[in-house]
C-alpha cells in the first residue's frame, strides 16, 4: 500500500512536468506522457519518497513555499549578490578570511524536505556553501558552512547572519512541533 501511494504521488509529479514541457492537450501526447511517467515513477519513487507520500500536496504549504521563493529568498539573494559584487570589484582578496564554520539549526525543522531546503538556500546565496549537515546530541540539525569572509566566530550569531531570516520562513513551511512525530 505504501509503495503504491509513493508510486502514485511520483507519477503525478512526473506527469505534471511532462505536461509543462510539451504544453499540448493532444490525446496522443497525453497517452505517451502517462506511459513514460509511469515507467519513470516505478524506477524512481523509492529515491523521492522516504516518509509520508502525500506530504508535499498541501495547498497551504505550497502557497507559503511560493511566497518564500518570491519575496524572502529573493531579497536575501539580491543582498548577497551585491555584497559579492563589492568583494570581486574591490580586488583586495588577501583581506578576506575564509573559514568552515559550524552553525546550529532550528530544532523545528526535522523533515528531509526542510533540511534540504535550508541547505540549498544557504548554498544559493553567494558567499556561503553548505558542506555537511549533521545532528548534534539533542537531535537538532547542524550545518557546516564554508564562508568566504568570516565576520563572526560566535556560532549562534554567525548562524543568525547566514540564514536567520530564511530559516524562520522555512520553519513556517516545513516545521513541526518539537516532540511530536508527525507525518512519519
Amino acid at each position: 500500500m505504501k509503495k503504491i501511494s509513493a508510486w502514485l504521488s511520483t507519477f503525478i509529479l512526473c506527469f505534471l512536468f511532462w505536461e509543462l514541457l510539451v504544453w499540448s492537450a493532444n490525446p496522443r501526447e497525453l497517452l505517451l506522457g502517462a506511459l513514460v511517467s509511469a515507467g519513470a515513477a516505478a524506477l524512481s519513487s523509492r529515491f523521492l519518497i522516504h516518509e509520508s507520500a502525500w506530504y508535499l500536496y498541501n495547498p497551504v504549504r505550497l502557497l507559503l513555499l511560493l511566497i518564500y521563493c518570491l519575496f524572502v529568498f529573493m531579497r536575501e539573494l539580491i543582498a548577497a549578490n551585491n555584497q559579492m559584487a563589492k568583494i570581486v570589484l574591490s580586488g583586495h582578496y588577501d583581506r578576506l578570511s575564509p573559514g568552515v564554520i559550524r552553525v546550529p539549526g532550528d530544532g523545528r525543522i526535522r523533515s528531509e524536505y526542510g533540511l534540504a531546503m535550508v541547505a540549498n538556500s544557504i548554498t544559493l546565496t553567494p558567499g556561503t556553501i553548505t558542506m555537511d549537515v549533521a545532528e548534534d546530541d539533542q537531535g537538532n540539525p547542524v550545518y557546516y558552512v564554508q564562508w568566504i569572509d568570516v565576520a563572526e566566530t560566535d556560532r549562534g550569531k554567525a548562524g543568525e547572519i547566514i540564514k536567520g531570516r530564511m530559516e524562520r520562513a522555512i520553519a513556517r513551511i516545513w516545521g513541526e512541533k518539537p516532540g511530536k512525530e508527525a507525518d512519519r
Binding site: 549578490n81 559584487a85 578576506l96 558567499g127 564554508q146 568566504i148
Partner: peptide, 26 residues
Amino acid sequence: LIGTMGILRMPDVFGRMQASTCIATL
C-alpha cells in the same frame, strides 16, 4: 561578468566557487 571576473581573479578554489554562484542565480 562579476562571476567570470571572480573565477578569473580569485586566488583559490573556494573563492572561485563562491563567485560562480552569481552566474547561476541572479
